Simulated scan of single mutants.
Amino acid sequence: MRSTLRNVVRYLAILVGAFVLALPLLFMVSGSLKSATEINTFPPRLLPATPIWQNFADAWTYLTAGVIANSFVFALGIVGLQLIISLPAAFALAKIPFKWTAAVMASLIVPMFIPGNLTLIPLFIVTFQLGWLNSFAGLIIPMAAQCAFAVLLFRQFFASLPGGLIEAARIDGASWGRVLWSIGIPLSRPALATFCSVSFLTAWNMYIWPQVVAPDPEHRVLNVALAPLAGGENSLIPPSVGLAGAVIAMVPVLIVFIVFQKWYIKGVAGTGLE
């Protein structure tokens, strides 16, 4: 009886917590279907009296297919380049002994404590000097180079791999690259899914760097295009249209999380090997 009561209380607490966390999301989706007058009524109503789907059509005039494609190129480009850089580096730090491992690890940890706003101006100057303004190279490469977290994450995972597995492959004549490709990467799917989902979400939500480096229409990403929909006191754009734009911007991230959910949970739980 006591165990049943404990379970009931636990599930009630989970349901209440889930509702509190989901309430802003529900309000955003509901507000995207309301009229400009209805969204400002007090007390607010969670559900619209009559759904207005035109809000999404109005938001789509700002968030076009080209803008969404630019956002995917930007986010996937950062994730892909960071994987190319961080996986070999992390594997070398974890499994290939050399003299300066501790110094390299320290050089990776220190930049993580520097706020990004402090490096924004120097990074912009370097990008300008390279002639990368208003280009995908300027959008992607400077952000992809900031992969210290990825190296440390994968290094910790590779360090947990059984040493005998690596030694057996080396005895059979496999090169270090072959060991990484055939053993390290296949076994690191939980860590890969965790990093890819977090890195994709971080890149997808970036605003300052794309706004500074590539604000032109040809390279504009979602958050830059979404900014005018945020509205204000003198804005002529209804807040419901802005909420519809936020819903459109949320859908790709939600799909990515659903696809990688299984591996993301494994990576967070730190289960390591299957």
Rank of each mutant, 00 (worst) to 15 (best):
E38P: 08
F42Y: 11
P43V: 13
P43S: 10
L46A: 10
P48Y: 03
P48S: 02
A49K: 10
P51L: 01
P51S: 02
I52M: 08
I52A: 03
I52Y: 06
W53C: 06
N55G: 07
F56E: 08
F56K: 00
A57E: 10
A57M: 11
A57K: 02
D58H: 06
W60R: 11
W60F: 08
W60D: 04
T61W: 08
T61K: 12
Y62K: 01
L63A: 01
L63G: 00
T64K: 11
T64P: 04
A65Q: 11
V67P: 00
I68L: 14
F72E: 00
F72N: 02
F74A: 01
L76S: 14
V79K: 01
V79I: 04
G80T: 10
G80R: 06
L81A: 09
L81D: 02
L81C: 10
Q82L: 08
Q82K: 14
L83H: 08
I84S: 00
I85T: 09
S86R: 00
S86M: 00
F91Y: 12
F91R: 02
F91D: 04
L93F: 00
K95Q: 15
W100I: 14
T101I: 14
A102V: 12
A102I: 10
V104L: 14
A106F: 13
A106M: 15
S107K: 09
S107F: 15
S107T: 15
L108D: 02
L108W: 04
V110A: 13
V110G: 09
V110Y: 05
V110F: 15
P111L: 10
P111R: 10
P111I: 12
M112Y: 06
F113G: 03
F113C: 03
I114S: 03
G116A: 12
N117Y: 12
N117A: 14
N117C: 08
L118H: 07
L118K: 02
T119V: 15
L120C: 01
I121L: 12
P122S: 09
P122R: 03
P122Y: 11
I125S: 03
V126H: 05
T127F: 02
F128Q: 13
F128K: 13
F128R: 13
L130D: 06
G131T: 08
W132L: 12
S135F: 06
S135Y: 01
F136E: 06
F136Y: 15
A137V: 08
I140H: 00
P142N: 07
M143A: 07
A144C: 07
A144I: 01
A145F: 08
Q146W: 08
A148Q: 10
A148K: 04
F149I: 14
F149V: 12
F149A: 14
A150P: 01
A150K: 06
